[in-house]
Design a protein around this nucleic acid. Structure first.
Length: 495
RNA sequence: GCCAAGGUGGCAGAGUCCGGCCGAACGCAGCGGCCUGCAGAGCCGCCCAUCGCCGGUUCAAAUCCGGCCCUUGGCUCCA
């Protein structure tokens, strides 16, 4: 079975065929670095990461590019707030640092490059010039706008006609534009205080001195700044060529951002800009989406430090990338239980494999069939438009197969268990889940102390002093140490 | 208003593209049993779904077609 993906461009689920049979170019519309990344960003990040991992698993060489938008009014608006520094560049620098830290915390594969707008202005200017030369853009008062009426397919991605699209942009822009739907490729001068007032978090009046920190560049049309949409076209072409295999982004970017990217890119090159457009659905929370602008978000770093990487990733992949997902703490707690179940099954099976007791001679047909079935199920799930929920289900089925086998016999099928454990590691890794167990370390001082306390408790149990034994266990549980008694003695997991 | 996505058990969430294996997965919650000094974990089993509503096509529909109701997202910065 081959990979199928749902292409927003056609609305269909199509077989995936990259331009080059061995390589895939993947561009992800990254963050505007004006706020700390929140779980909504993490959701898209993780799904793109899973796509990357699965494409690699299928044997493709993946070229993965993700931009940082570091030139934007929203960033200027934050100048002077908190400890963000005194310039647009310093605010951007702070939040790029935060974003990278969060990516590491989420166990994301590194992209090949994270281009910034500020370092691609020459490419952007070239692209705008090309568009002007080809008659797709016009200059007006030092700004340059894309002429949507000149591009026949405008609206194809979002399935709208130009007439449907009501006026957009700042009121003072409209007088400069020939058609209300025309969009800015280049904006004259710096940032207008009125334009950033709405983006201030402290609700303070427009900070005129902040606006002066906005970066501007010299261009054929005078001093100015790039428009929002042109950056992605310029950066993706600079790093991945004129035609992308996959372009991913949030659903909220379909219009106008992605629509405009297509128009300006294809107008400039006469080549298809992206073969497959994949869109990540958003979180729903109290009947509205989670977003920076609504201020109703949970930051990535808060979530990871509270629940841990594996739990957060289990939660974020609990739905398909292109289905919206309800955000709630209860939902994350439920994901935590699912992750615990996987981890316990993995650890128990590993312990059985590493036990010095003899356990090797039987072949458990049921176990091996279950392992094979789970592997097949995982692979079909991922090939079916990256269905991470079904993939999790396959992992959970695998966990039960392993538990079941250990429950049924002490005469373990070593080879069968090993295959199962191996599959959990390999396919868990596709979802970015790691059984390395940084929290289960028995080599730490804490681990040794717990072992010591449990050895005392065992003596109390053997002596029938269950009250003392329970007291010790309760005390450890209260500290977050999960103590489990079993036939082979107690096991524990550190918090 | 226009465009798009969706409405499946107590919760959450697959399945809908390619109609029959769906008398509806997996997990959580709940209930029984096994195991256990107890608890937990685990295993086995059970409970909860007329798959938004109405009509149509078909031997057969959660899945296809038509109409209606409702929700969400986009149309303004947004993953």
């Amino acid at each position: 079975m081959t990979l199928h993906v749902t292409n927003t461009l056609t609305g269909e689920t199509e077989p995936f065929e990259p331009q080059d049979p061995d390589d895939v170019t993947l561009y992800y519309c990254g963050l505007t670095v004006s706020d700390p990344p929140h779980l909504g960003h993490a959701r898209s990040w993780v799904h793109v990461d899973v796509m990357h991992r699965w494409l690699s698993h299928l044997g493709y060489d993946v070229a993965h590019v993700e931009n940082f938008t570091d030139v934007n009014e929203k960033i200027v608006a934050r100048v002077g707030e908190d400890d963000l520094g005194t310039s647009e560049a310093s605010v951007a620098h702070t939040y790029i640092g935060q974003a990278i830290e969060d990516m590491r915390a989420l166990n994301l594969l590194r992209a090949d490059v994270y281009p910034r707008v500020s370092e691609h202005v020459p490419e952007i200017i070239d692209l705008v010039e090309t568009l002007v030369e080809r008659g797709y853009a016009y200059e007006s008062n030092g700004s340059v706008y894309f002429d949507v009426t000149a591009f026949d397919d405008y609206g194809a991605l979002s399935n709208q006609s130009i007439d449907d699209i009501e006026s957009q942009g700042e009121p003072d822009e409209r007088t400069e534009k020939r058609h209300p739907a025309d969009f800015a490729l280049w904006k004259a001068d710096g940032v207008d205080p009125d334009a950033i007032a709405d983006h201030r978090h402290d609700g303070a009046a427009p900070a005129a001195e902040s606006c002066e920190t906005a970066q501007t560049w010299d261009s054929p049309w005078g001093d100015g700044r790039p428009g929002w949409h042109i950056e992605c076209s310029a950066m993706s072409m600079a790093h991945l060529g004129e035609t992308l295999d996959i372009h991913v982004g949030g659903r909220d970017l379909v219009f106008p951002h992605h629509e405009n990217e297509i128009a300006q890119s294809e107008a400039a090159t006469d080549q298809q800009f992206a073969r497959y457009w994949l869109h990540c659905e958003l979180f729903e929370l109290d009947d509205e989406k989670m977003s920076s602008s609504l201020g109703n978000f949970v930051t990535v770093s808060d979530a990871v430090s509270r629940w841990g990487t594996n739990v957060v990733r289990t939660f974020l992949t609990a739905g398909a990338y292109n289905s919206s997902q309800i955000y709630s703490e209860e939902a994350i707690d439920e994901a935590e239980k699912r992750w615990d179940r996987l981890e316990r099954a993995y650890e128990d099976a590993t312990a059985a494999l590493d036990s010095p007791d003899a356990h090797t001679k039987e072949t458990d047909r049921a176990l091996r069939d279950s392992v094979d079935t789970a592997i097949t199920a995982f692979e079909s799930a991922m090939n079916d438009d990256f269905n991470t929920r079904e993939a999790q289900t396959a992992l959970l089925d695998l966990a039960r197969a392993l538990n079941s086998h250990r429950e049924a016999t002490d005469d373990y099928d070593y080879e069968g268990l090993r295959r199962g454990v191996d599959a959990m590691e390999r396919y868990g890794a596709i979802l970015g889940l790691s059984f390395d167990g940084e929290t289960t370390g028995d080599v730490s001082l804490a681990g040794e102390l717990v072992e010591f306390l449990l050895s005392i408790r065992e003596r109390e149990r053997e002596a029938g002093n269950y009250e003392r034994a329970d007291e010790l266990r309760d005390e450890l549980q209260a500290l977050g140490v999960d103590v489990q008694d079993s036939d082979d003695g107690p096991t524990f997991r550190l918090p």
